[in-house]
Design a protein around this nucleic acid. Sequence first.
DNA 1: GTAACTGTATTATTGATATAATACAATAAT
DNA 2: ATTATTGTATTATATCAATAATACAGTTAC
Lengths: 119, 119
Amino acid sequence: MAWEIKNDRPVYIQLVEELEIRILNGTYTVGTKLLSVRDLAGEAQVNPNTMQKALSELEKKGLIYSRRTSGNYITDDEKLIRDLRTELASNEVGEFCGKIKKLGITKKETIELINKEDF
Amino acid sequence: MAWEIKNDRPVYIQLVEELEIRILNGTYTVGTKLLSVRDLAGEAQVNPNTMQKALSELEKKGLIYSRRTSGNYITDDEKLIRDLRTELASNEVGEFCGKIKKLGITKKETIELINKEDF
DNA sequence: GTAACTGTATTATTGATATAATACAATAAT
DNA sequence: ATTATTGTATTATATCAATAATACAGTTAC
């Protein structure tokens, strides 16, 4: 799986975002065990401490929980996952529309541009 | 004019973005003189050095030019402004659609969400 | 002509981030 | 029972970003 970490923003933030997306879009299955901190860090080619920091953030959000000597697990709370997915999408749409509006581009033009995109 | 500087990303980057948008959307008129570095810094409530750094970036892009003891001026190149505006919009759309697609949300749903937005 | 203002440069200090190198206690695996 | 693996914590170092405090030479304004 691709970990595209750029250096334009804090690495741990980018890790949180990538992990969150994988949980919300089902790449990581509800209730299953994650790779170990060290293995995840190896995959993403970051320092284990940095990955640990990202996982701590996800635990605060309730998206994962840790069993101290066994590993980190994806939450079982499917409603939480659905809700956060909806919330994230909503935020992205709001942010995007705000920027586009500020550029002085109309809704009609925006939808035309999106229709040209492949998805 | 509102300067909404958060502390989630480098301040000078946010200043570049805000100034660029103001030039591209016509808030700052082609060929006119900008406020002085110190006054702009005061308006945005940042350190003059930070504002200076942002202005240097804009000069690299060709959006402003400086007359050393007179002030900074918006470029006269209207085509450059039009082109950069189009490019920026295109980039925003691409980035947005990439994120939305990765969340597993369809184009149809996306357009419905955008239609609910006010612009 | 003098004073104020211009962009620009320099130096120092502080805080956040990333990495590195360990360490440890509890559990899982063998 | 021993070994390896787990999350977690600690300490140190390096780099980048932001601010602060000046400084200077060349206009511009009066």
